[in-house]
Design a protein around this nucleic acid. Structure first.
Lengths: 387, 387
DNA sequence: CTGAAAGCGCTTACAG
DNA sequence: CTGAAAGCGCTTACAG
């Protein structure tokens, strides 16, 4: 009983148990056993599909799906057959097919602005803690580098490849956020824009961190302070959020407390920190207290100060803001630091995102997390004023 | 002329210009204009599909596809119509549909072992340079955190979500590599296994780096050396490649040159480096030259040495291996360093991967890249032997 | 509890 | 140069 059949485009898909056909892909007249399909026996790629499992288990495709997803009751007997078949074929669900049918990939993207091209140790911690939390809740979170342009965001959100987006390194007026709001996919910010109406975010409470930092220095008798940061980012966009907020808070708090205050910026590198220290020594000879918010530059800055003749903390006190103990500990002496709550931010950012995806209609979270103080050998009493 | 039709499951898909039907999703008797479909006017998600574009441009779905992909000749007139329609609908191709049809997502994964949980500055540079190169060649490369288990690799490679994989942090006998070899998807290593037969990789030439490092110290008169590293990883797997190879090379080179040599390991942190220095001072009082291959611990180690009473480089010389200038510059004094060719490795690793995907059947690349020396203030002549 | 079939949004061999 | 239709690998409303 040989019959020449119209060919399915790529492969035998129906529950026909045995028939002969001319395969356009294999150029032969072949007997094909769909009922006991062994993918390794054919010329094609050796991954089994759900249909293969169904054929082997002698059930329908639908039943296999119900079994795998627990989406409908399946009798123990059937379940056993299906599971046996899956094991035999070493079956793995294809996530792309599933994604197309469901509209879900279970992949989340942590957007990383590639232009800026430095991923600070603190950002790495956002990433790892966010990834952990995502996994805990059944998602994969990947770090997705992209340009700062809104267009790139659109491309990703409309691709269907990810179910949601966490954005880092937010500018005060960030076109990417506008674009995300326009898109249909859920998102959350680590950081925040100027106007946060209706936008879920988690961020460091920079304002309170600055106040804490300044007050700690005041308590030690310092009255002449400098804030060192990493520059404002794109000024057209209102600047990089952390820097803008920190500067503003620094200005306000020092004014309110009646202190002398100035701001300096440098590169995000250790060499940048050394240069900054040289510049600092020249420009601010009377300053005795420094807040530094520039993680990469911190240890270099401390080294540079000492090369410029300062002894720490006798001549000058330095406090790192929104950095980490590990970075602070690279400096000699070890810096005091207001530790960025990076792990918590990563976790909460992912929670905010997944809560939206899973359609809990809780109000959108907007959270500010505090830094915590870790002492170090760079904090000391202000020296007596020079005569 | 009202007719009640059997409903397509989710939406109007055919080229019917206008008809009435009862929508199960919208619970109304509605007039639907498929010919001039405006996604914003309906209740459903506002993303246009290729069918919407085809309807608006009055061409077939296939023609839209040909236009977008330049996969068949299309008349200028038709092309213009299609492009106009795409613009009007703000159309973006859905990557999941495309991926299912083509078997390609154009996404590559850089696998990052989440268990290990530190992404060194050098690894960050792998990532950014790999991502850049991927983009240049038309792919997205994302950093994909996963456990060290082979099972997790299988899950990813069989998901269809990525077209290829670059693996970092390779162990000498790495089950993930075995799993990748078994899978159908292309891969490349940054690093290498013990047996590299048939496996495409790019790696640092640790052997020559060690030789260079030792010889530089010898030239300065040092004869008693210690190698400080970050521990061997999972010993069951033959250990972390860079550490294993470096130790072996260090043993061989120092033996061959007739030097005293020892090896120490510490944590991957600055505090770990400080602890190591203390231990070092106690255990190796006669050593005058140190090779350190532990990026996170470097600056802490240098700081710890000085706290233990060493002056650098008068009493002791330190040379960092496979690290970066930026990390070296966090130490005071700045460390001399054999710079890891991270950018090049990232780029070449991606090239090796994409070459396979794009079916160039060049032989699989197996490349060792040299470190380059950058001077620093931690290298000096060996002190005269103590009496 | 199980199955046939439509649908997700694309690509492409085949036939004009 | 253009189109109708099958297929990619799944999910799920509907009907037993």
């Amino acid at each position: 009983m040989i019959s020449i059949m119209p060919l399915p485009r790529r492969r035998c898909q129906e529950k026909i148990k045995a028939l002969y056909f001319v395969s356009s892909t294999r150029h032969t007249l072949t007997r094909v056993e769909c009922g006991s399909f062994d993918p390794r026996a054919t010329g094609r790629s050796n991954v089994a599909t759900m249909q293969d499992v169904a054929n082997l288990a002698n059930v329908s495709l639908a039943t296999v799906s119900f079994t795998i997803n627990n989406s409908k009751p399946v009798s123990p007997k059937t379940r056993a057959k299906v599971e046996q078949a899956m094991k035999e074929l070493n079956y793995r669900r294809n996530a792309v097919g599933s994604a197309l049918a469901r509209g879900r990939t279970h992949v989340l993207a942590l957007l990383y602005p590639a232009l800026q091209h430095r991923l600070s140790p603190t950002s790495v911690r956002f990433f790892t803690s966010a990834a952990d939390q995502a996994r805990l809740r059944g998602y994969n979170l990947v770090l997705w580098p992209m340009s700062n342009e809104a267009e790139a965001v659109t491309e990703l959100t409309s691709s269907g490849l990810v179910d949601g987006v966490v954005l880092m390194e937010v500018q005060l007026d960030d076109p990417r956020v506008t674009e995300l709001s326009r898109s249909n996919i859920p998102f959350a910010l680590i950081g925040r824009t100027r106007d946060t109406t209706g936008i879920p975010f988690v961020d460091v409470n920079f304002e309170s961190a600055v106040e804490t930092a300044v007050d700690r220095l005041i308590q030690l008798g310092h009255t002449n302070l400098v804030l060192v940061d990493g520059g404002g980012g794109d000024q057209l966009l209102g600047g990089y959020g952390p820097v803008a907020r920190t500067r503003k808070a620094f200005g306000e708090v020092t004014a309110q407390r009646g202190l002398s205050a100035a701001i300096m910026s440098g590169l995000h590198s250790s060499a940048g920190g050394r240069d900054l220290a040289k510049e600092f020594a020249a420009q601010h000879p009377d300053t005795t207290g420094v807040l530094i918010m520039n993680e990469h530059a911190g240890p270099g800055f401390v080294a540079g100060l000492q090369q410029a003749g300062y002894r720490l903390p006798r001549d000058i006190s330095v406090l790192a803001i929104a950095s980490s103990v590990d970075t602070a500990s690279m400096a000699e002496p070890e810096m005091a630091v207001l530790i960025s709550p990076a792990d918590e931010l990563g976790r909460l950012g992912v929670d905010a995102l997944i809560d939206q995806i899973d359609k809990k209609d809780d109000p959108l979270p907007q959270l500010l997390i505090e830094c915590t103080y870790s002492p170090g050998a760079t904090m000391g009493k202000a020296p007596r004023k020079k005569p």
